[in-house]
Design a binder for these strands. Structure first.
Length: 488
RNA sequence: GGCCCGGUAGUCUAGUUGGCCUAGGACGCCGCCCUCUCAAGGCGGAGAUCACGGGUUCGAAUCCCGUCCGGGCUACCA
């Protein structure tokens, strides 16, 4: 096989949809697996939506996912430009060629006329596609339309009596009689190309060998094949149409259901490794048991043959499980860096060196407790500020004043302030009082963190520091606090 | 309406040259163990008449026919 070339061709309408992210991932994995080229082509022909910010968001998302492109905007390549807005000359030339060769014709029908005929066809139970009205206009008709000042679009003249077939890697053969393909628009009245023309032509011009895209584009495929043929392009790419991603009720993922933008997942504390792993599993499987794949493993194992055919439901719970897995694997120092922005956003003073150091120290306690990076602030807030006890903590503190004072006393004289000695002192105290560990430590946790759920207690106290620990215990005990040196 | 694609537990899926499937794995859920809380980890459990109905066959999730359900396309959107 010649060099494999795949592409992702997003419309820059902001942060990319997770469905497009999956399509991008499969294209990328396929290219990497075969040592081929992954192309990024921006379909920004719809000027209304294609803002620079939206474009930047697309680029940012792809980079975040790690889907580096070998050719495309910002990196260039031999088949550029890679933004369709800069390729209009090529589309125009193709349209002219098709017009000249009789493969396409001018259509003078107005949108109103089309809508009306369409309605009528629907009302009479007929197939609503274009009726070929302008396909064989007489010179007189044309002269009249021109005299009326009508604008024209260009339609492809679909040849009758043929069947266009192609072999879809995931679905097998798909054949379409040309009778079912109405003459479709390839250039709008303003001269701009439609998707079928632009995407199909660019795929050919850029030597894309494997077109991997959503199954919503299956009907576009025979049209693009027809276009290639009419343009004299003899080779054709391999097609693979991926099943759609749907929500819990089987509908395509939409804003109504929840987060559909990749950026939303990043902002909600998911890490790219988890996202990539999860997306890979959504429609593809390697065997009957493996769920965890590093990017390298995905590249080695990915194949279109093992892509499924049925639509997949996006399940945040499984994504979270993977996210937790990758967070657990992360070196603590990296985890500390990753959670820092979330802590800062939550209002914790984690921006400076002191805050950074604090996060470095708690990170090991967090790695097995975070489903999302965004869970971190709530768990570490007590290290940055004193917390008013919540309802359950307040309850646990009832009548514990004397005990908490004793705990403070037990800790005050420690020679070394480390986890092991803190634990030994508090366990000894519990022992003396005949308290079960749970009953002994929860009041202390409540006094220190303001809650009954926190990172492990002894480590937490070690990190908090002696002064602040004693101050909080004494405050909770109702005792005067002797010159607490900690932050409050 | 027409054409196309799909239908294994709540979810993702394995299995599709028919027998190794009394349908395997994972997430989630439930229980137990561990335990200073929460997690993590270990162990165990519930959960699928393989959409439904026929047929072929000694034998079907796997083959054939029909039905139902879901989705896509049917745009001068992509």
């Amino acid at each position: 096989m010649a060099e494999v070339r795949t592409r992702i061709a997003p419309a820059p309408s902001g942060s990319i949809h997770v469905g497009n992210a999956r399509t991008a991932l499969y294209n990328w994995l396929f290219a990497r697996h075969h040592g081929g080229v992954f192309v990024l082509r921006v379909e920004d022909t719809d000027a209304k939506r294609a803002t620079e910010e939206a474009y930047a968001a697309v680029v940012e998302d792809l980079r975040w996912l790690g889907l580096t492109w070998d050719e495309g905007p910002e990196v260039g390549g031999p088949f550029g430009p890679y933004r369709q807005s800069e390729r209009s000359g090529r589309y125009r030339a193709a349209v002219m060629q098709l017009l000249d060769s009789g493969h396409a014709y001018r259509c003078y029908c107005t949108p109103e006329e089309l809508a009306e005929r369409r309605q009528r066809a629907l009302g009479e139970g007929r197939t609503p596609g274009y009726d070929g009205h302008c396909r064989h206009l007489s010179d007189a008709d044309i002269a009249r339309y021109e005299a009326e000042g009508r604008r024209w679009a260009v339609r492809f003249a679909v040849p009758p009596g043929r069947t266009i077939a192609f072999e879809d890697v995931v679905r097998g053969e798909i054949a379409t009689p040309t009778e079912r393909i109405p003459d479709f628009v390839i250039a709008r009245a303003d001269g701009s190309p439609t998707y079928v023309l632009a995407a199909g032509l660019d795929d050919a011009l850029m030597n894309i060998t494997h077109v991997i895209r959503g199954e919503d584009l299956i009907p576009a495929t025979p049209r693009q094949l027809l276009l290639r043929e009419a343009l004299g392009i003899t080779d054709r790419p391999v097609f693979a149409h991926l099943p759609l991603l749907v929500d819990g009720s089987g509908r395509p993922l939409s804003k109504r259901w929840g987060d559909v933008a990749v950026r939303a997942y990043r902002e909600r504390g998911f890490v790219p490794e988890a996202m990539v792993n999860y997306l890979a599993l959504l429609g593809w499987s390697y065997d009957d048991r493996t769920n965890i794949f590093s990017v390298q493993e995905l590249i080695e194992r990915f194949s279109l043959e093992r892509v499924g055919r049925n639509p997949a439901t996006f399940d945040v719970a499984k994504l979270e499980w993977l996210n937790q897995h990758y967070i657990k694997q992360m070196p603590p120092s990296r985890l500390a860096e990753q959670i820092r922005p979330f802590c800062i956003a939550a209002g914790l003073d984690a921006a400076g060196d002191e805050g950074r150091a604090l996060l470095e120290r708690v990170a090991p306690l967090l790695s097995e407790r975070l489903k999302r990076l965004s869970d971190a602030p709530a768990m570490v807030a007590f290290l940055f500020r004193r917390m008013a006890p919540d309802e359950r903590a307040a309850e646990a503190l009832q009548g514990q004043g004397e005990y908490l004072g004793a705990a403070a006393d037990a800790l005050e004289g420690l020679e070394r302030w480390d986890r092991a000695d803190i634990e030994a002192a508090l366990r000894a105290l519990a022992e003396r009082r005949g308290l079960k560990p749970r009953r002994a430590f929860q009041p202390i946790r409540a006094a220190i963190t303001g809650t009954l759920v926190s990172p492990p207690l002894f480590e937490s106290l070690e990190i908090l520091g002696r002064d602040e620990t004693l101050a909080r215990l004494r405050a909770a005990a109702g005792q005067p606090v002797a010159a607490a040196g900690g932050k409050a």
